[in-house]
């Protein structure tokens, strides 16, 4: 379901929906724009180095599943709840 929606979006070239980490492709570099978590979760992610403005590489992604990214020299696995909450843009 998730995947189909994304495909459709890409086909129309609809860009005003913000891109989330869930849409990121492996091997590319992105920048974090915003994290839509509660303040508790946000503080935690900031402490792990996941901050707005931070650039990162997407390492592994499986559609709808968890993914691995590399931020500040550390690799993190993020579940799909998380990936939908992190707004990004391609660098």
């Amino acid at each position: 379901m998730f995947g189909r929606k994304r495909k459709a979006r890409r086909a129309i070239g609809y860009r005003s929906i913000p891109m989330t980490l869930a849409d990121a492709m492996p091997g590319r570099e992105y920048r974090i724009l915003k994290i839509n978590g509660g303040h508790k979760l946000n503080s935690r992610l900031y402490a792990m180095g996941l901050m707005p403005d931070e650039k990162f590489m997407v390492y592994t992604s499986s559609r709808g599943g968890p993914m691995i990214i590399v931020v500040k020299g550390s690799r993190f696995a993020l579940g799909r709840y998380m990936t939908g909450k992190i707004i990004i843009e391609e660098v």
């Binding site: 993190f76 696995a77 579940g79």
Partner: peptide
């Protein structure tokens, strides 16, 4: 409640 978001350092 929502599941603990899965964030883990490898």
């Amino acid at each position: 409640g929502e599941m603990e978001p899965f964030v883990m350092e490898l």
